[in-house]
Design a protein around this nucleic acid. Structure first.
Lengths: 341, 341
DNA sequence: ATGAAAGCGCTAACAA
DNA sequence: TTGTTAGCGCTTTCAT
């Protein structure tokens, strides 16, 4: 039923090859006389010819599709739930891909019997992977990919320098937060981490905090680091010791949100008695009361740059700078105020 | 370089067909002796065989991919910006697709030289289209689709009953809002619309409002309908006439947000002097002050049901009920309160 | 400038 | 139960 090059060829009185050349081959090296080209185009139009992309993809072994992998075990991402990095990131990824004439596909773990299979079976010309904390198994899978792959939120050394990465500048972002607090007169500043595991990510931000403080002659001690666990034990202790710190920088917005929720229960007013800064500056910050001051990652830009990188690799050129680091900003909202003397 | 069925066949001492049958044909009708099946599987494993999906897709003329089209002129959707229906919807779409073993692809208008081409060239087994207000051109395109297509947020008659639709129950949703206000003692209730155009959507909700009020013996007059235009002229007038109404239901959250922003400037306190209800109940409601009470659409469920419908059609069965209508809920927040006497 | 041949890897249909 | 044949629609040689 569908019209093929052959039929168009017959109608135009040429061979299928010519039809293909006229209709699909954008290269300048195609030499077909203008007269026949016109005949072919007319025939195609009359017959309502449409190229079968599946045949073409097969023939060329490329799909002009980018696959997006996500999270531990390639779990399904949510655009709406949770802290919504993913939504922001994806806006950039989609923007970047469309710009290059590619489309973007969300891959469930169930494509193929194993993720590796789906990753490498040719259905995608390239892959983007995103997660702040890859499992060891994930790392192995990613390193074994036979398809061009860029890791968003990947740290330079995390994949033995073998995979290109895009990440925000944690050092500079944390420094922005510290600077803001210093400008408000704060000196006794704490840093909040998730209680469970130290990821390469939280470690990176903690180190950034230590360095930033050290540069300002305010070295960080153990007692300046709060580990927030699900039972809030250490957090509550921190909040009760009212006079120890006047401000706290949290490793993530989520943790900062927990501080904001917990504080009033223990009689700590924010920001009057304690200024709080988060990291990521997603819409979640605006939903909190008080709205959370937060370091923003240029997530959309990170997504877009990841695709740019991917395109370089797909194009065959080893990327000039395979580790992109993008600067953060600071969104000042209601959870920080001058230190009260 | 890549291993093909042929090579596996050679190694296992069988024909390529048998390999295909053993490795890919999930149907129960495949009759291959267990012994050879094992030999084939071993050979495949040793050689590191991986099925070339592109070849398979080509052969079968199907991709197990769903394409997502969006908005007027097939513009690029944003997951993060704007009112974020799209993010919620997509969570459902992805959930539904993954459940059926399909993946989801975001299609730019630039796939192929025209949208129709990309829609119908075989790269997708089915399509989902979303937009509250399709242009006439869009309508035509959608009706001409040769690929199974479901319209999310489509009204039953909107596409000449030719396309299956999924939508929320505007009547029941608006009734929920009216009921809530009546329970709070409100009787003089206004309805706010965008000033520019009446879409099938806003018309539907307005009608629902009129009916709901009429059922409660509180018929709606013209002066109970506020058209909010970019210059806020009519809105300001409405807000200044303080005593006319004690509550207003808005056609969308966005408009309700404008009321919330505008009111204090004209000395109207919300909710004390005016209760406000929105429609959609996206995260945006929680970002507003006061947080906006709003009718929620079951967006994720709508996305998922759209895919279920699509699967029925792809499966070859004309859907039993091609027009799915899902019930709304009401999220009560801070922008409504009992009428003050 | 155009065409003939050949094949990408897979799998229905039929034959044995 | 297994194998042979054939072809999906396209495009890249290589000849003319």
């Amino acid at each position: 039923m569908p019209v093929t090059v052959r039929q168009v060829a017959a109608k135009a009185g040429v061979s299928p090859v010519v039809v293909s050349r006229v209709l699909h081959n954008k290269a300048t090296s195609v030499r077909v006389s203008e007269a026949t080209a016109i005949r072919v185009r007319e025939a195609a139009k009359e017959l309502g010819y449409r190229c079968n992309v599946l045949a073409r993809n097969f023939r060329n072994q490329q799909t002009r599709m980018i696959g997006v992998l996500h999270g531990v075990g390639f779990e399904r991402p949510s655009f709406d739930q949770g802290p919504r990095y993913f939504a922001c990131l994806m806006d950039g990824v989609v923007e970047g891909a469309f710009k290059h004439g590619y489309s973007v596909t969300l891959c469930p773990h169930l494509l193929g019997s194993t993720p590796q299979e789906a990753m490498n079976d040719g259905r995608f010309d390239g892959l983007v992977w995103y997660s702040a904390a890859p499992s060891e198994e994930n790392r192995r899978m990613l390193l074994e990919a036979t398809v061009p792959l860029v890791v968003i939120h990947g740290h330079k050394g995390e994949f033995g320098d073998q995979l290109p990465t895009v990440i925000c500048d944690n050092d500079q972002g944390i420094d922005l937060a510290v600077e803001h607090l210093f400008n408000l007169g704060h000196r006794r500043i704490a840093f909040a981490l998730g209680g469970d595991v130290i990821t390469i990510e939280s470690f990176s931000r903690l180190t950034a905090f230590q360095n930033s403080m050290a540069r300002r002659d305010a070295p960080v001690n153990d007692c300046d680091i709060v580990h927030i666990s699900p039972d809030f034990e250490e957090l509550d202790e921190f909040l009760r010791a009212k006079d120890r710190h006047t401000a706290v920088i949290s490793h993530t917005d989520k943790l900062a949100g927990q501080i904001l929720e917990r504080a009033p229960k223990l009689g700590v007013r924010i920001p009057d008695q304690l200024s709080v800064i988060g990291f990521d500056s997603t819409a979640y910050c605006r939903e909190l009361r008080p709205a959370l001051t937060s370091v923003n990652q240029p997530l959309a830009m990170m997504g877009e740059r990841a695709i740019d990188l991917l395109m370089e690799i797909i194009g065959g050129a080893p990327p000039l700078s395979p580790h992109v680091v993008l600067p953060c900003g600071l969104d000042i909202r209601e959870s920080t105020s001058p230190v009260s003397i």
